[in-house]
Design a protein around this nucleic acid. Structure first.
Lengths: 166, 166
DNA sequence: TTTTGAGTTCAAATATATTTGAACAAAGAG
DNA sequence: CTCTTTGTTCAAATATATTTGAACTCAAAA
Protein backbone atom coordinates (compact mmCIF):
# COMPACT_ATOMS: atom_id res chain seq x y z
CA UNK A 1 0.00 0.00 0.00
CA UNK A 2 2.16 2.83 -1.29
CA UNK A 3 1.00 5.83 0.70
CA UNK A 4 1.54 8.87 -1.49
CA UNK A 5 0.01 11.09 1.16
CA UNK A 6 2.59 10.52 3.78
CA UNK A 7 5.84 12.24 4.38
CA UNK A 8 8.34 10.38 2.23
CA UNK A 9 9.02 13.72 0.58
CA UNK A 10 12.22 15.64 1.07
CA UNK A 11 12.21 18.26 3.81
CA UNK A 12 10.82 21.64 2.89
CA UNK A 13 13.04 24.64 3.34
CA UNK A 14 10.95 25.63 6.33
CA UNK A 15 11.24 22.23 7.97
CA UNK A 16 14.99 22.16 7.39
CA UNK A 17 15.41 25.47 9.12
CA UNK A 18 13.33 24.46 12.09
CA UNK A 19 15.40 21.31 12.39
CA UNK A 20 18.59 23.30 12.17
CA UNK A 21 17.25 25.50 14.94
CA UNK A 22 16.93 22.48 17.20
CA UNK A 23 20.33 21.15 16.18
CA UNK A 24 21.85 24.39 17.43
CA UNK A 25 19.84 24.03 20.60
CA UNK A 26 20.87 20.51 21.49
CA UNK A 27 24.49 21.27 20.71
CA UNK A 28 24.49 23.75 23.61
CA UNK A 29 23.22 20.97 25.83
CA UNK A 30 25.98 18.69 24.64
CA UNK A 31 23.69 16.27 22.86
CA UNK A 32 24.37 14.85 19.39
CA UNK A 33 23.02 16.51 16.29
CA UNK A 34 20.81 13.56 15.38
CA UNK A 35 18.87 14.14 18.58
CA UNK A 36 18.18 17.67 17.45
CA UNK A 37 17.15 16.52 14.00
CA UNK A 38 14.75 13.95 15.33
CA UNK A 39 13.18 16.16 17.95
CA UNK A 40 13.02 19.02 15.46
CA UNK A 41 11.12 17.02 12.88
CA UNK A 42 8.74 15.68 15.50
CA UNK A 43 8.23 19.17 16.86
CA UNK A 44 7.27 20.66 13.53
CA UNK A 45 5.20 17.74 12.26
CA UNK A 46 1.44 17.98 12.80
CA UNK A 47 1.13 14.20 12.99
CA UNK A 48 3.06 11.50 14.84
CA UNK A 49 6.00 9.98 13.02
CA UNK A 50 7.46 6.50 12.87
CA UNK A 51 11.07 5.44 12.96
CA UNK A 52 10.96 4.75 9.24
CA UNK A 53 9.64 8.23 8.55
CA UNK A 54 12.58 9.67 10.44
CA UNK A 55 15.01 7.56 8.44
CA UNK A 56 13.47 8.55 5.10
CA UNK A 57 12.86 12.20 5.70
CA UNK A 58 16.03 13.04 7.62
CA UNK A 59 18.24 10.73 5.58
CA UNK A 60 19.81 9.18 8.67
CA UNK A 61 20.43 5.52 9.36
CA UNK A 62 17.99 3.27 11.14
CA UNK A 63 20.58 2.83 13.88
CA UNK A 64 20.84 6.55 14.50
CA UNK A 65 17.10 6.97 14.52
CA UNK A 66 16.65 4.10 16.94
CA UNK A 67 19.29 5.33 19.35
CA UNK A 68 18.18 8.92 19.07
CA UNK A 69 14.60 8.01 19.83
CA UNK A 70 15.71 6.02 22.84
CA UNK A 71 17.65 8.96 24.25
CA UNK A 72 14.70 11.27 23.67
CA UNK A 73 12.32 8.85 25.38
CA UNK A 74 14.69 8.56 28.34
CA UNK A 75 14.78 12.34 28.55
CA UNK A 76 11.01 12.38 28.43
CA UNK A 77 11.13 14.60 25.36
CA UNK A 78 9.31 12.13 23.14
CA UNK A 79 6.59 9.56 23.74
CA UNK A 80 4.74 6.90 21.81
CA UNK A 81 1.56 8.16 20.22
CA UNK A 82 -1.70 6.29 20.56
CA UNK A 83 -2.05 5.70 16.83
CA UNK A 84 -0.33 2.35 16.42
CA UNK A 85 -1.71 1.66 12.97
CA UNK A 86 -0.66 -1.92 12.50
CA UNK A 87 2.50 -2.95 14.30
CA UNK A 88 4.45 0.23 13.70
CA UNK A 89 5.07 2.67 16.55
CA UNK A 90 4.52 6.37 16.06
CA UNK A 91 6.09 9.08 18.17
CA UNK A 92 5.14 12.58 19.21
CA UNK A 93 7.13 15.24 21.06
CA UNK A 94 6.53 16.54 24.52
CA UNK A 95 6.45 20.27 23.96
CA UNK A 96 6.15 21.49 27.56
CA UNK A 97 9.28 23.39 28.49
CA UNK A 98 8.82 22.47 32.12
CA UNK A 99 8.86 18.79 31.39
CA UNK A 100 11.74 19.02 28.93
CA UNK A 101 13.89 20.89 31.40
CA UNK A 102 12.81 18.60 34.20
CA UNK A 103 13.80 15.54 32.21
CA UNK A 104 17.13 17.04 31.29
CA UNK A 105 17.89 17.92 34.89
CA UNK A 106 16.86 14.51 36.14
CA UNK A 107 18.79 12.54 33.52
CA UNK A 108 21.80 14.68 32.78
CA UNK A 109 22.39 17.00 35.72
CA UNK A 110 21.42 15.23 38.92
CA UNK A 111 23.54 12.12 38.33
CA UNK A 112 26.61 14.30 37.97
CA UNK A 113 25.76 16.28 41.07
CA UNK A 114 25.40 13.08 43.09
CA UNK A 115 28.64 11.54 41.96
CA UNK A 116 30.30 14.89 42.54
CA UNK A 117 29.18 14.94 46.15
CA UNK A 118 30.56 11.47 46.70
CA UNK A 119 33.92 12.51 45.33
CA UNK A 120 33.84 15.61 47.50
CA UNK A 121 33.30 13.50 50.60
CA UNK A 122 36.24 11.33 49.68
CA UNK A 123 38.40 14.42 49.19
CA UNK A 124 37.39 15.79 52.56
CA UNK A 125 38.44 12.55 54.13
CA UNK A 126 41.86 12.86 52.47
CA UNK A 127 42.31 16.32 53.93
CA UNK A 128 41.19 15.07 57.33
CA UNK A 129 43.99 12.52 57.23
CA UNK A 130 46.64 15.11 56.36
CA UNK A 131 49.04 16.47 58.96
CA UNK A 132 47.32 19.64 60.15
CA UNK A 133 49.30 22.48 58.70
CA UNK A 134 48.54 25.72 56.90
CA UNK A 135 48.12 23.98 53.57
CA UNK A 136 45.53 21.49 54.79
CA UNK A 137 43.53 24.36 56.25
CA UNK A 138 43.54 26.00 52.86
CA UNK A 139 42.43 22.77 51.24
CA UNK A 140 39.62 22.34 53.74
CA UNK A 141 38.41 25.83 52.96
CA UNK A 142 38.37 25.19 49.24
CA UNK A 143 36.47 21.93 49.64
CA UNK A 144 34.01 23.70 51.90
CA UNK A 145 33.41 26.13 49.12
CA UNK A 146 32.75 23.33 46.67
CA UNK A 147 30.21 21.89 49.08
CA UNK A 148 28.45 25.21 49.13
CA UNK A 149 28.36 25.26 45.33
CA UNK A 150 26.80 21.86 45.37
CA UNK A 151 24.09 22.74 47.87
CA UNK A 152 23.32 25.93 45.97
CA UNK A 153 22.73 23.83 42.90
CA UNK A 154 20.46 21.50 44.80
CA UNK A 155 18.34 24.42 45.94
CA UNK A 156 18.27 26.18 42.61
CA UNK A 157 17.32 23.31 40.35
CA UNK A 158 13.84 22.68 41.79
CA UNK A 159 13.29 26.43 41.90
CA UNK A 160 14.19 26.63 38.26
CA UNK A 161 11.68 23.96 37.38
CA UNK A 162 9.03 25.75 39.36
CA UNK A 163 9.60 28.99 37.49
CA UNK A 164 9.49 27.29 34.13
CA UNK A 165 6.20 25.63 34.95
CA UNK A 166 4.19 28.83 35.12
CA UNK B 1 67.87 30.59 39.83
CA UNK B 2 66.50 27.07 40.25
CA UNK B 3 63.63 27.45 42.66
CA UNK B 4 63.38 24.20 44.57
CA UNK B 5 60.53 25.54 46.62
CA UNK B 6 58.07 25.94 43.86
CA UNK B 7 55.70 23.55 42.27
CA UNK B 8 57.71 21.75 39.60
CA UNK B 9 56.84 18.58 41.49
CA UNK B 10 54.42 16.00 40.18
CA UNK B 11 50.83 16.38 41.31
CA UNK B 12 49.96 14.86 44.65
CA UNK B 13 47.21 12.28 44.76
CA UNK B 14 44.99 14.85 46.41
CA UNK B 15 45.64 17.47 43.75
CA UNK B 16 45.02 14.95 40.98
CA UNK B 17 41.66 14.07 42.40
CA UNK B 18 40.59 17.66 42.79
CA UNK B 19 41.60 18.28 39.20
CA UNK B 20 39.68 15.23 38.06
CA UNK B 21 36.69 16.61 39.94
CA UNK B 22 36.82 19.77 37.86
CA UNK B 23 37.36 17.84 34.66
CA UNK B 24 34.10 16.04 35.30
CA UNK B 25 32.49 19.38 36.01
CA UNK B 26 33.55 21.15 32.85
CA UNK B 27 32.63 18.16 30.73
CA UNK B 28 29.01 18.69 31.75
CA UNK B 29 29.31 22.26 30.54
CA UNK B 30 30.71 21.08 27.24
CA UNK B 31 34.15 22.57 27.79
CA UNK B 32 37.42 20.73 27.04
CA UNK B 33 39.19 18.73 29.69
CA UNK B 34 42.24 20.98 29.68
CA UNK B 35 40.06 23.84 30.93
CA UNK B 36 39.05 21.70 33.87
CA UNK B 37 42.64 20.74 34.58
CA UNK B 38 43.84 24.31 34.53
CA UNK B 39 41.04 25.71 36.62
CA UNK B 40 41.29 22.76 38.99
CA UNK B 41 44.98 23.30 39.66
CA UNK B 42 44.47 27.03 40.13
CA UNK B 43 41.56 26.37 42.46
CA UNK B 44 43.51 24.07 44.73
CA UNK B 45 46.78 26.01 44.73
CA UNK B 46 47.33 28.42 47.62
CA UNK B 47 49.47 30.67 45.44
CA UNK B 48 49.08 32.10 41.95
CA UNK B 49 50.47 30.04 39.11
CA UNK B 50 52.20 30.89 35.86
CA UNK B 51 51.68 29.38 32.43
CA UNK B 52 54.91 27.48 32.77
CA UNK B 53 53.82 26.02 36.08
CA UNK B 54 50.68 24.74 34.40
CA UNK B 55 52.70 23.16 31.62
CA UNK B 56 55.10 21.45 34.02
CA UNK B 57 52.71 20.30 36.67
CA UNK B 58 49.83 19.22 34.43
CA UNK B 59 52.06 17.85 31.70
CA UNK B 60 50.18 19.67 28.97
CA UNK B 61 51.61 21.63 26.06
CA UNK B 62 52.28 25.32 26.15
CA UNK B 63 49.70 25.76 23.41
CA UNK B 64 47.00 24.08 25.43
CA UNK B 65 47.83 26.04 28.53
CA UNK B 66 47.81 29.32 26.62
CA UNK B 67 44.48 28.64 24.93
CA UNK B 68 42.92 27.24 28.07
CA UNK B 69 43.94 30.28 30.07
CA UNK B 70 42.49 32.55 27.44
CA UNK B 71 39.13 30.77 27.55
CA UNK B 72 39.10 30.93 31.31
CA UNK B 73 39.89 34.63 31.29
CA UNK B 74 37.13 35.26 28.77
CA UNK B 75 34.76 33.37 31.03
CA UNK B 76 35.93 35.48 33.94
CA UNK B 77 36.93 32.33 35.80
CA UNK B 78 40.57 33.28 36.06
CA UNK B 79 42.40 36.59 36.38
CA UNK B 80 45.95 37.85 36.49
CA UNK B 81 47.37 38.05 39.99
CA UNK B 82 49.15 41.13 41.24
CA UNK B 83 52.42 39.32 41.83
CA UNK B 84 54.17 39.86 38.51
CA UNK B 85 57.60 38.89 39.77
CA UNK B 86 59.72 39.83 36.80
CA UNK B 87 58.00 39.64 33.43
CA UNK B 88 56.08 36.45 34.07
CA UNK B 89 52.31 36.59 34.60
CA UNK B 90 50.69 34.65 37.41
CA UNK B 91 47.06 33.64 37.53
CA UNK B 92 44.53 33.04 40.25
CA UNK B 93 41.00 31.66 40.04
CA UNK B 94 37.79 33.49 40.66
CA UNK B 95 36.05 31.26 43.16
CA UNK B 96 32.71 33.04 43.48
CA UNK B 97 29.98 30.81 42.12
CA UNK B 98 27.90 33.83 41.22
CA UNK B 99 30.57 35.24 39.01
CA UNK B 100 31.47 31.91 37.44
CA UNK B 101 27.88 31.23 36.52
CA UNK B 102 27.41 34.80 35.38
CA UNK B 103 30.39 34.56 33.09
CA UNK B 104 29.26 31.28 31.67
CA UNK B 105 25.79 32.61 30.99
CA UNK B 106 27.12 35.76 29.40
CA UNK B 107 29.70 34.04 27.20
CA UNK B 108 28.13 30.69 26.38
CA UNK B 109 24.39 30.98 26.84
CA UNK B 110 23.28 34.47 25.85
CA UNK B 111 24.93 34.50 22.42
CA UNK B 112 23.04 31.33 21.51
CA UNK B 113 19.79 32.76 22.81
CA UNK B 114 20.24 35.86 20.72
CA UNK B 115 21.05 34.08 17.50
CA UNK B 116 18.16 31.73 18.23
CA UNK B 117 15.73 34.62 18.43
CA UNK B 118 16.92 35.96 15.11
CA UNK B 119 16.38 32.60 13.47
CA UNK B 120 12.96 32.40 15.05
CA UNK B 121 11.99 35.75 13.56
CA UNK B 122 13.09 34.59 10.16
CA UNK B 123 11.03 31.41 10.54
CA UNK B 124 7.97 33.40 11.54
CA UNK B 125 8.38 35.44 8.41
CA UNK B 126 8.46 32.27 6.34
CA UNK B 127 5.20 31.12 7.88
CA UNK B 128 3.67 34.54 7.31
CA UNK B 129 4.41 34.18 3.61
CA UNK B 130 2.80 30.74 3.38
CA UNK B 131 -0.66 30.27 1.90
CA UNK B 132 -2.91 30.37 4.95
CA UNK B 133 -4.05 26.83 5.53
CA UNK B 134 -4.36 24.49 8.44
CA UNK B 135 -0.72 23.55 8.34
CA UNK B 136 0.57 27.10 8.52
CA UNK B 137 -1.64 27.69 11.56
CA UNK B 138 -0.01 24.70 13.21
CA UNK B 139 3.43 26.02 12.32
CA UNK B 140 2.60 29.46 13.71
CA UNK B 141 1.51 27.84 16.96
CA UNK B 142 4.70 25.89 17.28
CA UNK B 143 6.86 28.93 16.61
CA UNK B 144 4.83 30.85 19.16
CA UNK B 145 5.72 28.18 21.66
CA UNK B 146 9.39 28.52 20.86
CA UNK B 147 9.15 32.24 21.44
CA UNK B 148 7.69 31.57 24.84
CA UNK B 149 10.56 29.21 25.66
CA UNK B 150 12.98 31.92 24.71
CA UNK B 151 11.38 34.58 26.85
CA UNK B 152 11.18 32.20 29.77
CA UNK B 153 14.89 31.71 29.49
CA UNK B 154 15.49 35.43 29.41
CA UNK B 155 13.52 35.85 32.63
CA UNK B 156 15.02 32.90 34.40
CA UNK B 157 18.69 33.54 33.77
CA UNK B 158 18.98 36.78 35.75
CA UNK B 159 16.86 35.24 38.47
CA UNK B 160 19.24 32.32 38.59
CA UNK B 161 22.21 34.63 38.99
CA UNK B 162 20.44 36.47 41.75
CA UNK B 163 19.81 33.27 43.70
CA UNK B 164 23.38 32.14 43.34
CA UNK B 165 24.65 35.44 44.63
CA UNK B 166 23.21 35.13 48.12
C1' DT C 1 5.97 -23.45 11.99
C1' DT C 2 7.84 -20.42 8.82
C1' DT C 3 8.04 -16.02 6.98
C1' DT C 4 8.02 -11.15 7.20
C1' DG C 5 8.90 -6.71 8.82
C1' DA C 6 9.92 -3.50 12.77
C1' DG C 7 13.25 -2.29 15.74
C1' DT C 8 17.82 -2.97 18.34
C1' DT C 9 22.70 -3.65 18.92
C1' DC C 10 27.44 -2.91 18.39
C1' DA C 11 31.88 -2.93 15.97
C1' DA C 12 33.82 -0.37 12.31
C1' DA C 13 33.85 3.92 9.69
C1' DT C 14 33.40 8.62 9.89
C1' DA C 15 33.13 13.17 11.63
C1' DT C 16 34.21 16.47 15.16
C1' DA C 17 36.88 18.46 18.77
C1' DT C 18 41.05 18.87 21.27
C1' DT C 19 45.92 18.84 21.85
C1' DT C 20 50.42 19.28 20.33
C1' DG C 21 54.63 21.46 18.76
C1' DA C 22 57.23 24.27 15.94
C1' DA C 23 57.34 28.77 13.99
C1' DC C 24 56.44 33.20 15.24
C1' DA C 25 55.79 37.84 17.79
C1' DA C 26 56.70 40.97 21.60
C1' DA C 27 59.24 42.95 25.11
C1' DG C 28 62.77 43.32 28.68
C1' DA C 29 67.89 42.42 29.63
C1' DG C 30 72.48 42.88 28.41
C1' DC D 1 70.99 46.18 18.54
C1' DT D 2 70.97 41.43 19.76
C1' DC D 3 69.89 37.80 22.77
C1' DT D 4 66.67 35.60 25.83
C1' DT D 5 62.59 34.69 27.83
C1' DT D 6 57.53 34.65 27.75
C1' DG D 7 53.63 33.83 25.50
C1' DT D 8 50.64 33.21 21.07
C1' DT D 9 49.11 31.07 16.79
C1' DC D 10 47.67 27.57 13.81
C1' DA D 11 48.20 23.48 10.88
C1' DA D 12 48.89 18.73 11.69
C1' DA D 13 48.35 14.85 14.84
C1' DT D 14 45.62 12.81 18.08
C1' DA D 15 41.70 11.70 20.80
C1' DT D 16 36.81 11.58 21.36
C1' DA D 17 32.12 11.20 19.90
C1' DT D 18 28.78 10.09 16.51
C1' DT D 19 26.93 7.62 12.70
C1' DT D 20 26.49 3.80 9.88
C1' DG D 21 25.16 -0.75 8.37
C1' DA D 22 24.93 -5.55 8.72
C1' DA D 23 23.63 -9.12 11.83
C1' DC D 24 20.44 -9.98 15.16
C1' DT D 25 16.00 -10.41 18.16
C1' DC D 26 11.28 -10.41 18.66
C1' DA D 27 6.60 -10.67 17.63
C1' DA D 28 2.85 -10.92 14.53
C1' DA D 29 0.97 -12.74 10.16
C1' DA D 30 0.40 -16.39 7.04
Amino acid sequence: MADGNRSEKALSDFESQVIEFFCDGVKILGLPKSIGEIYGLLFISPDPISLDDLVCRLGISKGSASQGLRSLRELGAVREAEVTSGRRVYYEPDVELKRLVGGFIKEQVRPHLSSGEEKLDSLKKMVGDMPGDVRSDFYAGRLERLSRWSSRAKVVLPLLQKFLGS
